[in-house]
Every structure is written in C-alpha cells, then in structure tokens.
Amino acid sequence: MARPSWYSPVFREEAVQIALRSSKTISETARDLELNPETLRGWVKKHLKQHEPSVDADLTVSERARLSLGLPKQVGAWQARRSACHAHVCALYRTK
C-alpha cells in the first residue's frame, strides 16, 4: 500500500497546470515549486494520460477544417522541396 501524499490534490493539479502552460522545462518548473522533478513529471504524465482524447473520438468541425486546409499546403511545400532537390542532383550529375 502506498503511503499518503504530502501534497493535496489541488496543489498537484495547480502544479501540473503551471508545468503544462509554462515555457520552462518540467525540471525548471519543479525547482521553482520546490518539488522533485520526477514527482512533477509523474503528475504531468498521469494528467495527460487521464485527459487524452480517445482513439475513437470524432474530430470537431474546426479540427477537420484546419486539417483539410493545412495538409495541401504542407504537401505542396514538400513536393516543391523534393523537385528542387531533384533538379539540383540532376544538375550535379550533368556537369560531370
């Protein structure tokens, strides 16, 4: 049986929220809160596991729109880079 925690659930949740919203690393945040970094890391990991969306969850309308708008741009950029690299390699072989 695990020993009782020294930290209240409210403190844990606030520490997790600070860690998730901060631009600092978990270790830096833990140091600021005077916690062991592994303790905070465990709380964050547990929080994320409990609050992750299920695999079967449907996308919202805004998520679907964002994906449909962003993907063609990314694919176009990748294709342009690939074409540029291909042209560069072909030019190198032609000069030899």
Score class of each variant (00 low, 15 high):
Val55Arg: 08
Trp6Leu: 15
Gln74Gly: 06
Glu13Asn: 02
Ala80Leu: 09
Ala30His: 02
Val89Thr: 13
Ser62Gly: 01
Met1Tyr: 07
Asn36Phe: 04
Ala15Leu: 04
Thr25Phe: 05
Ala2Gly: 15
Thr29Gly: 03
Asp32Pro: 12
Ala80Gly: 07
Leu35Val: 04
Ser83Asp: 06
Thr29His: 01
Gly70Arg: 01
Arg31Ser: 08
Arg81Ala: 13
His86Ile: 07
Thr39Lys: 08
Val16Arg: 00
Val75Ile: 12
Glu34Leu: 11
Arg3Glu: 08
Thr95Cys: 08
Ala87Tyr: 09
Ser23Arg: 07
Lys45Arg: 11
Ala80Ser: 14
Gln17Met: 11
Gly42Lys: 11
Val55Pro: 12
Thr25Val: 03
Ser27Trp: 06
Ala87Thr: 10
Arg3Thr: 04
His86Gly: 08
Thr95Gln: 07
Lys46Ser: 12
Val44Thr: 05
Trp78Met: 12
Val16Asp: 14
Gly70Glu: 00
Tyr93Ala: 14
Leu33Glu: 00
Trp6Ile: 12
Trp43Cys: 06
Arg81Ser: 15
Arg81Cys: 10
Thr25His: 05
Arg21Met: 10
Arg21Val: 09
Glu14Met: 02
Ala15His: 03
Thr39His: 11
Val75Tyr: 02
Asp58Cys: 06
Arg64Val: 00
Gly42Tyr: 06
Leu92Gln: 13
